[in-house]
């Protein structure tokens, strides 16, 4: 009996986490809109996901897919250390897109590493829409 009530509590907290995720994305989309981003275009992010870049100092081409693979529902792998990276898709990994600071940190690091520059507010909005729908 106790187990069932724990199960219900856990299920409840999972639902809360899910709605918090939506809140994080909505908050950021609003921020990016305030910085000049138009409507988010997931298709554009889909294209950018596999476009290859070679920033100064890189010895190989890089794309988002280098580490995260082309399939957002799949586990990725860090290009250098080989450490597994949990799937990006919220449909298989409920922790994704739930924390504004976390999202901004990784946009900062990964845009600079992959593209060799920061992503624009429009690009970030596109990525959020793309990942959210995956």
């Amino acid at each position: 009996m106790k187990k069932i009530s724990i199960a219900i509590m856990l299920a409840g907290s999972m639902l809360l986490a899910g709605s918090a995720g939506a809140a994080a994305v909505d908050e950021l989309l609003q921020t990016y809109a305030g910085q000049g981003a138009g409507a988010a275009d997931p298709g554009a992010a889909n294209t950018l996901w596999t476009r290859e870049f070679r920033p100064a100092g890189a010895d190989q081409d890089r794309s988002c897919a280098t580490c995260h693979t082309r399939n957002l529902r799949q586990t990725g792998k860090h290009a250098k250390t080989g450490k597994p990276i949990d799937a990006m898709a919220p449909s298989v990994n409920g922790k994704r897109l739930t924390d504004v600071k976390h999202i901004e940190k990784w946009f900062g690091r990964n845009c600079k590493w992959t593209l060799g520059r920061e992503c624009s507010p429009q690009e970030k909005a596109n990525f959020l829409a793309f990942i959210r729908g995956s």
Binding site: G57, K80, K101, K105, G108, R109, N110, K112, W113
Partner: peptide
Amino acid sequence: LSDHFGDNAELA
């Protein structure tokens, strides 16, 4: 951390 063994690992 902005060039952490070739990775960008910047933190707040």
